[in-house]
């Protein structure tokens, strides 16, 4: 029976959220959030400040009771956080610790509380690069060091699902790259990283999948590649000889695409896969192209397009 239930939950997605809603008085912080994310890889949880990311994470971790809806984490309902919490590591918002205790003693207190092996402490400190400052009081840590300690605390349970809320806040550029690489490494190892951020450019480089929310409502949930494919919907072409511009625009017009001319280039409203065809046509008519590349919108532009017209909460 035990084995059967284990197999069942292991087959379940990392996160399955169904109609999750949280209302604080007159404010609806999260409304009918529904998405499913399979296990493994890095999931970016994005949205502007106040979008409802932290409230959602708090509901997932059992800190806040949903007003409506439900969710399953690693196959276990969020109404019983104890059933899954030992497989989950989390950093919720700003990292907070006991300032009078050293970094390692803070982790020791957490390890005792969660029943995690104390042998994990040096390993996680090493992972986040805090080993040399482990015996210093947290009161003397910089914000970046506290952030690293927060990530170390989240790694203590050797989690199957790592939930991090804005983990790169306060880190210097080198630290951001280190943490990004660490998350990638964890995601590649078959474990799941659910990382929330308001910096869309950050998830663009580190996430495999994306959950995008705005004003507490879901905007997109799926593969990052899927949304980025939609984002690359124009092609920039620049002839070597500016005099070829008229001929080049004729080719585009004949193919039935609209375009805008910007200086010595044209931006064609065509999918990126049309670029090689344009190149063939141009070559056949004796036009050498100095530049030919898909024009992709950034994730930020996509987000703004998708949420245009919605008032902020």
């Amino acid at each position: 029976m035990n084995n059967l239930s284990q197999i069942t939950t292991e087959d379940k997605p990392a996160l399955a959220v169904d109609g999750l809603t949280k209302i604080f008085g007159r404010i609806t912080a999260v409304e009918g959030l529904t998405f499913t994310m399979p296990r493994g890889g890095v999931i970016g949880f994005v949205g502007p400040n106040g979008a409802g990311k932290s409230t959602t994470i708090r509901m997932i971790l059992g800190l806040i009771r949903p007003t409506k809806g439900s969710a399953e984490i690693l196959g276990h309902g969020i109404c019983k956080p104890y059933s899954y919490i030992r497989k989950v590591g989390a950093l919720v918002e700003a990292p907070v610790f006991y300032p009078g205790l050293s970094g390692s003693n803070n982790l020791k207190a957490l390890a005792k509380l969660g029943g995690y092996p104390s042998e994990n402490i040096p390993r996680v400190l090493e992972t986040v690069g805090l080993m040399s400052r482990a015996s210093d009081k947290v009161a003397n840590y910089s914000l970046g060091m506290k952030q690293r300690l927060g990530i170390a605390a989240a790694l203590l349970p050797e989690p199957e699902l790592l939930i991090l809320d804005e983990p790169t806040n306060g880190l210097d550029p080198a630290g951001i790259v280190e943490i990004r690489n660490l998350l990638r490494q964890i995601g590649n190892s078959g474990r799941t990283v659910f990382v929330s951020t308001h910096l869309l450019s950050e998830v663009e480089v580190e996430a495999d999948r994306l959950v995008m929310i705005h004003n507490g409502r879901l905007v997109f949930a799926g593969e990052l590649a899927e949304i980025m494919k939609k984002a690359c919907n124009s092609v920039l072409a620049r002839p070597e000889n500016a005099a070829d511009m008229t001929l080049l625009t004729e080719i585009v017009r004949e193919a039935g695409y609209s375009f805008n001319q910007e200086g010595n280039s044209i931006i064609v409203d065509a999918p990126m896969y049309w670029a090689p065809e344009l190149n063939r046509h141009a070559t056949s008519k004796g036009i050498n192209l100095r530049e030919l590349r898909p024009q992709c919108e950034s994730l930020e532009d996509i987000f703004l397009n998708m949420t245009r017209g919605e008032a902020a909460v």
């Binding site: 971790l61 800190l63 104890y82 907070v96 957490l110 509380l113 969660g114 605390a153």
Partner: peptide, 14 residues
């Protein structure tokens, strides 16, 4: 006040 209640409840949700 310090918000450490969050880390306590994540480690021991009961």
């Amino acid at each position: 006040e310090k918000g450490t209640i969050r880390i306590l409840l994540v480690a021991e949700p009961r």
